[in-house]
């Protein structure tokens, strides 16, 4: 009951916000639009109206997406009663920023090329940059500091950008699952996410024929499919993975994802299906009247929507036909 009144206001507010997400019709109209500018015009009738008005160059549509993400997080942070939940959901942006900065530093170049999220994560980008400038990471939260120190220590022997991803991802998921410990719904969500990441990692490792030791290091600890499941499978052909996961909720993701890989040699379908799986998981819980489900769903939906727009815009700028863009699109939340 205490929880009811804690979430009642926020859930109701999120319900209204959900109304402003793009619906299928609008996405379809973007798809069918003549060109990139026209596709953007569809957005002018939506939540994005003022941002579209200010966008001078279609090619800079990423600014619009970043701006929207920042706006949504800022808005939600203002009214949400459970900061831990937002901290968990925003943590991935800190890690993303860290990765970009670390790689830039390690490879000795500017970080300009990659997308950075200035004010979405829990640590403002400016602060991160200041830390890098002073080479002083004491203000980082402990789990990230440890990871950064580990990377710094290992860099001289092994200057491999992939290593940065691996260590930070592990730190991220360990932290997320610890944060989510008291919020069962969130825990379940992150567990699914970690499982899907692990399955993808496994497939990658197999395809690239990397060694077993590497696999052990790369697998996240957060999922409920145990590491040994993957290491046992390492010496079997990839198809066995499908059989072993046939009874798991991920059967369809794995089957169709692998089928496309065998046909076309890419994993985009797997990624799309994995995203859809998570979205559907959240969607099936979103009507819970009091609890974190609605907000998690909403934020995921926003991120999903941004991905949709990005895919469409990239497709339109490259003059792909609508059908080809549609193949890559994710579901719509609403």
């Amino acid at each position: 009951m205490a929880n009811d009144s804690k979430y009642a206001y926020a859930v109701a507010r999120v319900r209204v916000l959900e109304n402003r997400l793009l619906d299928k019709g609008q996405v379809d109209r973007m798809l069918e639009a003549q060109g990139a500018r026209e596709a953007l015009q569809v957005l002018a009738e939506t939540n994005y109206a003022s941002a579209v008005g200010e966008l001078k160059d279609v090619h800079r549509f990423e600014d619009l997406l970043a701006g929207e993400l920042e706006r949504v997080y800022r808005e939600v942070r203002r009214f949400y009663p459970e900061p831990r939940l937002l901290e968990a959901l925003a943590a991935k942006y800190d890690v993303h920023n860290l990765k970009v900065l670390l790689k830039a530093q390690g490879l000795g170049r500017e970080a300009g090329g990659d997308i950075l999220y200035p004010n979405v994560g829990n640590i403002p980008l400016a602060k991160l940059e200041a830390m890098f400038a002073q080479e002083d990471f004491r203000d980082l939260p402990p789990h990230l500091r440890q990871a950064v120190e580990e990377i710094g220590a290992g860099w001289s022997q092994r200057p491999d950008p992939q290593w940065i991803d691996i260590i930070l991802d592990r730190a991220l998921y360990d932290h997320l699952l610890a944060l989510a410990d008291t919020i069962p719904f969130l825990k379940e969500f992150f567990t699914h996410q970690a499982n899907l990441v692990n399955i993808k990692t496994f497939i990658r490792v197999k395809i690239l024929r990397q060694d077993e030791d590497f696999l052990k290091k790369v697998l996240l600890r957060g999922g409920d499919i145990h590491q040994s499941f993957f290491t046992d499978l390492y010496h079997e052909p990839l198809e066995v993975l499908c059989d072993r996961l046939a009874l798991s909720p991920y059967a369809q993701v794995v089957n169709e994802g692998l089928a496309e890989w065998q046909e076309k040699g890419r994993l985009t379908r797997f990624e799309k299906l994995a995203d859809d799986f998570l979205l559907n998981f959240v969607r099936s819980h979103r009507h819970h009247p009091f609890g974190p489900q609605a907000l998690v769903g909403y934020l995921l939906a926003v991120e999903n929507e941004l991905k949709l727009i990005r895919i469409i815009m990239v497709g339109k700028l490259n003059k792909l036909p609508p059908e080809e863009i549609r193949e890559r699109l994710r579901d719509v939340y609403v």
Partner: peptide, 9 residues
């Protein structure tokens, strides 16, 4: 509380 959540938007 729910109502003010909706009305705020």
């Amino acid at each position: 509380q729910s109502a003010s959540g909706v009305v705020s938007e």
